[in-house]
Design a protein around this nucleic acid. Structure first.
Lengths: 124, 124
DNA sequence: TCAAGTGTACTACGAAGATTAATACACTCG
DNA sequence: CGAGTGTATTAATCTTCGTAGTACACTTGA
């Protein structure tokens, strides 16, 4: 299910984190599903248990998982991670806006910018 | 004029870069002023010449300085660095806006956010 | 109760990157 | 030409980061 790409320069825990997050976002792993244990997944991927632990820990911080000591890790409700992601995006957007204001951009400048973005069809 | 703080965890070249940038932004160093030579400033600060060179190099990249081989480094015109800083702010603002759009924020949500920012008195 | 399975905390090692230093080169100008 | 300037290259040192090893704490079922 998960394949580690050793040509990828990013650390393993980050690759695992991203791929699991994708599976959750796409709904392949539905809420309250029990994740494989850190040790089991570590064996499957041939990595250290702490590496998986770190990935799980990140996913928990981002609201994708919740963990119960002695029982395991489970997929969170959709709203949990959706709200989390939205909050962070709002925070960074606000900061970017403040910076723009401080460097002299006017209210109209910024309004024009966001209008452009929202009129584009494709975004990435 | 410049004091290096060794309790500061940031690298020396970054401290020097920031403090010189502040002096330029505040107008203490006006356009076309000749900066101290890399070797001279290195002696004054008791650091290696390359460290100063790196700071100058960064300042040049950000449009604060221009250098002439064999002659020295000089403070740029105000518009040079102002435009540069503005460009970067616009780029990050646009990206933040795209992310917000992708995570489901509506056009009105974003408009409301920037309105708030521009109605605030103090910003940092 | 205990043993197996679970998450977690702590420490340490190794590699990779960042920072600084040493040195040599190229240019300007008197 | 020589002193002063910026710049390129290389090397040494330092710091950070990713990963691994190990021990601890909890849950559950036999």
């Amino acid at each position: 299910m998960i394949i580690i790409d050793y040509r990828d320069k990013r650390p393993i825990y980050e690759q695992v984190t991203d791929k699991l997050a994708q599976l959750i976002i796409k709904g392949v792993l539905s809420p309250n599903t029990k994740m494989p244990s850190v040790r089991q997944l570590a064996i499957d991927l041939s990595v250290n248990a702490n590496t998986v632990q770190r990935a799980y820990s990140q996913l928990e911080q981002n609201g994708y998982l919740y963990s119960v000591v002695g029982k395991g890790n489970f997929v969170s409700e959709v709203n949990d991670w959706k709200n989390q992601a939205t909050k962070e995006n709002i925070a960074t957007l606000r900061q970017a806006c403040i910076n723009a204001k401080n460097c002299g951009l006017t209210y109209d400048d910024v309004k024009k910018l966001i209008k452009e973005v929202y009129e584009e069809k494709q975004t990435s």
